[in-house]
Design a protein around this nucleic acid. Structure first.
Lengths: 188, 188
DNA sequence: TCGAATAGTTACCGACCGGTCACACCTATG
DNA sequence: CATAGGTGTGACCGGTCGGTAACTATTCGA
């Protein structure tokens, strides 16, 4: 799949010929399905972002009506993804690689990241933390930073403490409520 | 300067001819000073990382014997840099762009990021926070994440809360009792 | 069985890439 | 003045890029 080649070599680092060959077809056929390489890039990014949306639904279903468990599940899943994936987030990497020019992929990237942010913020809000916007943006930055940090310094860099950093952040926004509030939030 | 072109267009996005022209010289002369484009890339990254090292010395001098003030100065400076700079961290961006191949720039990037991490951790330790390693890696990830996040979603994304996120993180480790207890309450 | 659409093949286009060549030029030191 | 070393110039190398033209082979529904 084209996603895999883009993620491994970067968008600029792989040619249309190689993509066609990996898809067990040829360039002409590929150009009949996608008008240009840029279109193909957008399509792969859209595909990736749809898979991410499915992950959110699955996360919600696995801990119904328990936003705090969902939040912790999110952390765990992101940590797992960080451990499994050598190449970071495709969308973020594309944003880095195509930063200047007005590439059509930019709207795909922005829509994706904004959607992620909205869902994460809603999760934090539903979990009843004291500053949901600040916590969700903190978690967003931690995740994004962990991915690029792993690319820069490997798995022994700051990213090795991603999960603990998330947990500490969540705790610091969860606990500061008064003892009374905290007691009433303890699940049965 | 070549740094500026690399940072704006990416390493793969700018050609040697254009770099030479911007330096008001020509390709041949450029190749007589730097053996290859890769060498030039390494040199610019080294230059950038030396400027960063100078920043640390300056930070230390501006708040002598007050590590907590230095830490807060670091946050402030990073936030300022985030606001000023449209293109994120050159070293991190290079790591993203050259992720797969064994590019000679990788050792420059790794050395730089490790040095940054060491200095930040020392600062946290000297400031007497409860978990200096965790706090410094948290701040590293927040910074890295803020930069790429700004590239992906602009200045209205999660990066807009970078400074508050850092301050909250520092505060939560500065009052050792609450942070530690709460963190250990989160189930694995 | 015919015809339309789809896919495969090959060669090609112009542009650009990183890198090198030979050669004219300038300047400065002896 | 002579000579040597750095600089500018422009053509050139082989290779790759994204993208297309023209033609053939295959499939499949009517």
């Amino acid at each position: 799949m084209a996603c895999e080649l883009f993620r491994q070599h970067g968008i600029r680092g792989i040619g249309v010929d190689a993509i066609a060959e990996a898809a067990e077809t040829n360039k002409m056929t590929l150009y009949r399905h996608f008008g240009s390489k840029d279109d193909l890039v957008c399509e792969t990014l859209r595909y990736t972002s749809e898979k991410a949306a499915a992950f959110w639904d699955q996360l919600e279903a696995s801990h119904p009506n328990d936003p705090m468990a969902q939040l912790q599940g999110w952390v765990k899943a992101r940590a797992q993804c960080l451990a499994d994936n050598k190449y970071g987030c495709d969308l973020a990497n594309a944003a880095v690689e195509l930063k200047e020019q007005g590439h059509p992929a930019h709207v795909v990237i922005e829509n994706f990241k904004l959607a992620q942010r909205r869902r994460l913020e809603k999760l934090c809000r539903d979990a009843g933390v004291s500053e949901p916007e600040l916590l969700s943006d903190t978690l967003s930055m931690l995740m994004e930073g962990a991915q690029v940090s792993k690319l820069a310094t490997g798995s022994e860099g700051p990213s090795m403490r991603f999960m603990r950093a998330c947990e500490a952040a969540i705790a610091s926004f969860h606990q500061p409520a008064t003892a009374l509030e905290t007691a009433s939030q303890i699940p049965a």
